[in-house]
C-alpha cells in the first residue's frame, strides 16, 4: 500500500496552523526554552554576579550544595511551608465553599469578598498584614490582649516559630479563595437527585457530606492539591516580603535561597544549581499533574 499522502488542502491547513503558532513558538524559545537551558548550563560555572566573570566547575556546585546545611534547611522550610499552607487552604477552602453553596444572604457579595484576597497584589497583602501584625500598634495584638489570650505583645514575624506560622496563615488567607471557587464550581454540578435519594435513605447531613459530597469532590480536589502544591512550593513574593527568610534563615525557602545566592551573595552559578535542583524536585508534581490533565483532555 502506498504511504498515505495528505491532500493539498490538508497541507495548506497544516501550514496555516504552523504559521499561527510560529510567533508563539519563537517567543517561547527566546524567553523560556533558551533561559531554561542556560540555567542548567550556568549551574556548571562559578560566576561572580557584578563582573559576570565565570569559570567552569562542572558538577562542583551540585556537590557543594548537597553538602551545605543551608540547602537542606531551606528545603525543609519549603516543605513545612508548602504542607502547612496547603493543608489550611484545602480545609478552609472546602469549608467555605460548602458555606457559600448554601442559600446565603447577599451571596454574590460574600463571594466577592472571599475572592478578593486571591486577586489582590501580594505586595498589598503583605503591607496590610504587616500592619495588622505590627507589635506596638497592630490590631491583632490589641485583640489578643483585650481578649486576654496573651499578656504581652507578640512579635509575629521576628521570632520562631511565630514567623513560620504567620506566613503559613497569610499564605492560607491569600490562596484559599482558589480552592473555594474551584470546589464551588464542582459543587454546583452535583445533581440534587443524589441528595434527595440519600435523604430518602435516611442519611443525615454529616453522612450526606461523607457519602455524596466528598466522593464527588475527589477528582477536583486531587487536581487542586497538585496545582496548589506546585504553586505554593515556588512561592517567592509572599515569604520574601513578609520575613525576607528571617529570622536568620528560619523561613527561607528554596526560591528565596536562589534569589539570595544570585543577587546578594552574588554567586550566579551556584544560584542556578539551586534553581535546577528545585525544579527537579517540582518535576515530580508537575509530571503527575500533566499526566492527569492529558488523560482527561
Amino acid at each position: 500500500m502506498p504511504a498515505p499522502r495528505p491532500t493539498a488542502l490538508e497541507r495548506q491547513y497544516a501550514r496555516l496552523g504552523v504559521l499561527l503558532i510560529a510567533p508563539t513558538v519563537l517567543v517561547f524559545c527566546a524567553v523560556i526554552v533558551y533561559p531554561l537551558v542556560s540555567a542548567i548550563y550556568l549551574s556548571l560555572f562559578q560566576i561572580f554576579t557584578p563582573t559576570l566573570q565565570g569559570s567552569w566547575v562542572g558538577l562542583d556546585n551540585y556537590r557543594a550544595l548537597l553538602a551545605r546545611g543551608e540547602f537542606w534547611t531551606s528545603l525543609q522550610n519549603n516543605l513545612i511551608w508548602t504542607v502547612g499552607t496547603l493543608t489550611l487552604q484545602i480545609l478552609f477552602g472546602v469549608a467555605m465553599a460548602l458555606v457559600l453553596h448554601q442559600n446565603l444572604w447577599f451571596r454574590s457579595l460574600a463571594r466577592s469578598l472571599i475572592l478578593f484576597p486571591y486577586f489582590v497584589s501580594t505586595v498589598v497583602a503583605v503591607l496590610v498584614w504587616k500592619w495588622v501584625f505590627n507589635d506596638l500598634y497592630g490590631i491583632l495584638n490589641h485583640f489578643m490582649l483585650t481578649l486576654g489570650i496573651i499578656d504581652w505583645p507578640i512579635d509575629y514575624l521576628g521570632t520562631m516559630p511565630n514567623a513560620m506560622i504567620s506566613i503559613i496563615l497569610v499564605g492560607a488567607w491569600k490562596y484559599f479563595p482558589f480552592v473555594v471557587i474551584a470546589v464551588l464550581a464542582r459543587l454546583q454540578t452535583i445533581p440534587e437527585a443524589l441528595y434527595e435519594a440519600a435523604r430518602i435513605d435516611g442519611a443525615g447531613p454529616v453522612a450526606r457530606f461523607f457519602d455524596i459530597t466528598l466522593p464527588q469532590l475527589r477528582e477536583v480536589l486531587v487536581v487542586i492539591i497538585l496545582l496548589r502544591a506546585i504553586w505554593d512550593f515556588k512561592e517567592f513574593d509572599l515569604i520574601y516580603l513578609m520575613t525576607g527568610g528571617g529570622p536568620v534563615i528560619a523561613t527561607q525557602t528554596l526560591p528565596l535561597l536562589v534569589y539570595k545566592e544570585a543577587f546578594a551573595v552574588n554567586q550566579m552559578g551556584m544560584a542556578s544549581a539551586y534553581a535546577v535542583v528545585m525544579m527537579a524536585i517540582m518535576l515530580a508534581f508537575m509530571i503527575v499533574y500533566i499526566r492527569r490533565t492529558r488523560e482527561r483532555g
Binding site: F236, A271, S272, A275, M278, M286
Partner: peptide
C-alpha cells in the same frame, strides 16, 4: 502539535526563579 501543548503546560507550572538568572543576563 502535541509536544507543543505539553511544553505550554510545562511552562505554565515552571517557577520564575529558574528563569530569572539567565533572563537577567540576557
Amino acid at each position: 502539535r502535541e509536544s507543543l501543548a505539553f511544553l505550554v503546560l510545562f511552562t505554565y507550572l515552571l517557577p520564575s526563579v529558574v528563569l530569572i538568572i539567565p533572563l537577567y543576563l540576557m
